[in-house]
Simulated scan of single mutants.
Amino acid sequence: MNLTNFIRSTVLKSHKVEAARIELRCLIGVSILVVSALTIFALFGCAQPRDAYYFVISQSGNPYWQVIKQGIEETGTKKGITPTVVFADLAGKDNPNWFNVILSQRPKIIVFGGLPPKEEAEYIRLADREGIKVAEVNFDPTPSNEAKKANIDLAFCVLANHESVGKRAAEFVAATKKRPDPKILIIGGPPGNAFSEGRANGFKVAIKNLVPQAHVVATVYASWDRAKAEGLVKESLAANPDLDFIYAVNDGMALGASDAVQAAGKGKQIAIIGVDATLAARKAIKAGTLAATLIQVPYWMGIETCEKAADVGKGVSVEKQESVPVLLISKEVIESKKDPLLQYLR
């Protein structure tokens, strides 16, 4: 190879190396741009999703709301939507502006439930002001009542009614009483608690109509505490040894009542009714130490809420007001397996 050709070859190789370097730098630059774009999308691209459905609920430690969440999420898949369930009591700890973030995403609808009534009513007002459809799933009618007062049109309301739980308990007493004038003890939660008062008052009104000769010997308050309920029942049995029924407005207190009744050897005489259909209560019913328990099925509430929200988001008309049915569970109901609401127990 002569000198001229050698120089040409060397220059050509040098150009190729430089071209390769330029190409590599370009590839690296493009890669950085792509990664940056993907990062930006991941962080902000969801700021305005096309079909966001939010369910803002509270009491993350409450098993009722956890089951409602389960019903919402499992139904979302069937309805072709991706529901986002936010526990407000947790979201506020992570980001004080969490609700503004939700509003910025312009969701199809926001369904609220279980927050402190005044706080929830304010969130409803803020969402409505932004032109976002709002709805309610709740055990407390206060937020929906506040929305009505403010002329806010709720897309729908799925509402549990505590009085209807008490009424169903009274119907059970009327159907199973052994004498026309049964004696009944009512065990409430904390005095003044809306849930407790609703369940107790619903029972009192219904039993007066269904069994006029029935006698409520007393209403005692055990503040949701099993041991306290047991002690109160022991005292009541001393004053009323011929008691026929005990209606406790939650299962924990019903189980406490059962402890006292069994200790007194009056398990066959006194029928005990609880509320919430906890696993412990259902086991007690099978064992014969509780007569019945009632529940406004939370999984059903989650399903119904998600179905309605999906329909509203798609422009389908829905029933504005939906009352949550009450399931009464007794040994007969468990064994017959005929009540369709049993499928929603979790």
Score class of each variant (00 low, 15 high):
residue 61 G to R: 02
residue 179 R to M: 11
residue 156 F to C: 00
residue 211 V to R: 05
residue 181 D to F: 13
residue 89 D to Y: 01
residue 38 L to D: 09
residue 164 S to R: 06
residue 321 Q to T: 15
residue 139 F to R: 12
residue 64 Y to R: 01
residue 170 A to G: 08
residue 276 D to N: 07
residue 144 S to F: 03
residue 46 C to S: 10
residue 171 E to Y: 09
residue 58 S to M: 10
residue 284 A to L: 08
residue 335 E to T: 12
residue 5 N to A: 12
residue 110 I to N: 01
residue 261 V to S: 02
residue 107 P to G: 13
residue 315 G to W: 15
residue 64 Y to M: 00
residue 315 G to I: 14
residue 114 G to K: 02
residue 225 D to M: 03
residue 155 A to I: 05
residue 116 P to K: 01
residue 118 K to C: 03
residue 172 F to P: 03
residue 2 N to C: 04
residue 292 A to Y: 06
residue 229 A to G: 05
residue 54 Y to I: 02
residue 123 Y to K: 01
residue 177 K to Q: 14
residue 44 F to D: 03
residue 340 P to L: 15
residue 270 I to R: 06
residue 297 V to F: 07
residue 212 P to L: 11
residue 109 I to A: 08
residue 4 T to N: 08
residue 81 I to Y: 07
residue 227 A to S: 14
residue 222 A to K: 02
residue 69 K to H: 10
residue 45 G to M: 05
residue 273 I to N: 06
residue 86 V to G: 00
residue 275 V to G: 05
residue 176 T to Q: 10
residue 108 K to T: 08
residue 244 D to K: 07
residue 304 E to W: 14
residue 17 V to Q: 15
residue 289 T to Y: 01
residue 219 T to I: 13
residue 54 Y to W: 06
residue 201 N to V: 04
residue 330 S to K: 04
residue 282 R to A: 11
residue 209 N to C: 09
residue 168 R to T: 05
residue 232 L to V: 04
residue 108 K to Y: 09
residue 285 I to L: 00
residue 291 A to Q: 13
residue 180 P to Y: 15
residue 23 E to V: 07
residue 2 N to Y: 04
residue 55 F to T: 05
residue 291 A to T: 10
residue 297 V to N: 11
residue 171 E to A: 09
residue 315 G to L: 14
residue 130 E to M: 14
residue 145 N to P: 04
residue 65 W to F: 10
residue 18 E to N: 10
residue 66 Q to V: 12
residue 73 E to S: 10
residue 300 W to A: 08
residue 83 P to G: 15
residue 38 L to V: 14
residue 189 G to P: 13
residue 316 V to I: 06
residue 164 S to E: 11
residue 146 E to T: 11
residue 244 D to T: 07
residue 60 S to R: 04
residue 292 A to T: 05
residue 117 P to I: 02
residue 91 A to L: 06
residue 133 K to L: 04
residue 252 G to N: 15
residue 330 S to N: 04
residue 120 E to L: 00
residue 340 P to A: 15
residue 250 N to Y: 00
residue 245 F to V: 02
residue 92 G to W: 03
residue 114 G to A: 05
residue 221 Y to N: 12
residue 204 K to W: 10
residue 34 V to T: 10
residue 229 A to R: 05
residue 104 S to C: 13
residue 139 F to Y: 13
residue 207 I to Q: 03
residue 285 I to G: 03
residue 305 T to A: 08
residue 293 T to H: 07
residue 289 T to K: 08
residue 178 K to F: 15
residue 174 A to S: 05
residue 170 A to C: 14
residue 196 S to K: 07
residue 272 I to R: 13
residue 145 N to Q: 15
residue 346 R to H: 07
residue 271 A to N: 15
residue 276 D to F: 01
residue 69 K to N: 13
residue 217 V to W: 14
residue 344 Y to S: 08
residue 69 K to T: 08
residue 125 R to E: 00
residue 227 A to R: 11
